Simulated scan of single mutants.
Amino acid sequence: MTSMYTPGETLEPRLDYVMCASPAGTHRMAYWEWGDPENDRVLLCVHGLTRTGRDFDDLARQLAKHYRVVCPDVVGRGKSDWLINAANYVVPQYVADMFTLIARLNPKKLDWVGTSMGGLIGMGLVGTLAMSAMLRPDRGSLGLPADQTLSLGKIVLNDIGPQLSFAGLSRIAEYVGEPIQFDTFEQAVDYVRSVSAGFGSHDQAGWEDLTRHVFNQKDDHWVKHYDLRIAEPFADQSEAIIQASESVLWAAYESIASPIFLVRGQESDLLTAEAAQEMLARNRHARLHNVPGVGHAPTFRSHDQIDPVVEFLLEK
């Protein structure tokens, strides 16, 4: 297939889709792609709970010369299909979808940037790989090439970790499934600003960009550009369930043998300072970068947030 990519063309992403499956049926997952599609060095950037792959536009523009940058809209969000059964809006389904996307991309080298939910998906993927490696029969004995394996390279976890603040999750749960609509785009911008104070300071143009892909004009109104049913399994997560899942996430996190860059909003109510320090203690490959004046979560829209991530990903 002839590539339509023009070297140096990084202003806007290309939109494509991959067919995935859930227990209830099939669904298309959209993904935004930057850089040379023939580049087998892939950076997969995965967004937070109610966001889209377009959250990474500024970071992608900086890295498109070095990577094939791929930013999916997780199912139920943005340009992706909605699931038939809302009970499947959970991390294991998202992990399965990412494996399908990765098979499409066929990277030689795969690095990961995950904001909030996107970081949980990354840890879930790592955990699945580790468990599979323990349980799988030896490939050599089956006549399979031993080098045809997938492993994550560098990993950026943006304001997320194995230990989560229940108070922070409860705050997010309050607005996720709220069926709200607005008469004007400006009203939608004001709403996003009000529920996303943790994103830190942005000018009016910045808040408009942060609204543009998560609200959609339908008839004469602006409505949330995601399936409100994503709130259903999210709301079922009691404090006991969350604590029980932490051991699985810690095991996945501790199994990471590649460099980890922990980005934390210094005022975050989801990833506490104590949890971040424990992450440093429990994986020697991790380093921590605190973003002042920001809560949950840094948006990677300014040079002071983008440059440390770029430096980490590109350093030898």
Rank of each mutant, 00 (worst) to 15 (best):
T211L: 01
Q62K: 14
D40K: 15
H202K: 14
D307L: 03
S3I: 04
Y89S: 03
G177Q: 01
K109S: 10
V69N: 05
A86L: 01
Y94R: 02
S245L: 13
G127N: 13
L169H: 08
C20S: 12
A130N: 15
K109V: 14
D203V: 02
Q305S: 06
M134S: 11
T115P: 09
P7N: 09
L63W: 04
V70W: 03
A251D: 10
R139P: 05
Q204W: 07
R212M: 03
A130K: 15
G114S: 13
A275I: 00
T115D: 06
R229E: 13
A297Q: 04
I84C: 07
A275E: 03
K108Y: 02
A286E: 02
V189N: 00
L169I: 13
G293C: 11
T52K: 05
R51E: 12
V223K: 03
A276Y: 01
G124A: 08
R28Q: 13
Q217E: 13
W250Y: 09
Q204S: 11
V309T: 11
L110Q: 02
Q217A: 12
R264T: 04
P107T: 04
Q217K: 15
E239V: 10
R264Q: 10
E38R: 14
F234I: 04
S22P: 05
L43R: 08
G78A: 10
L270C: 06
A86Y: 06
I260N: 04
I242A: 06
Q148Y: 03
G265W: 03
L144G: 01
D81A: 07
G168S: 11
D307E: 15
N106R: 14
D183K: 13
P7S: 06
Q277Y: 09
N88T: 00
V95C: 14
R284W: 01
N106Y: 04
H66T: 04
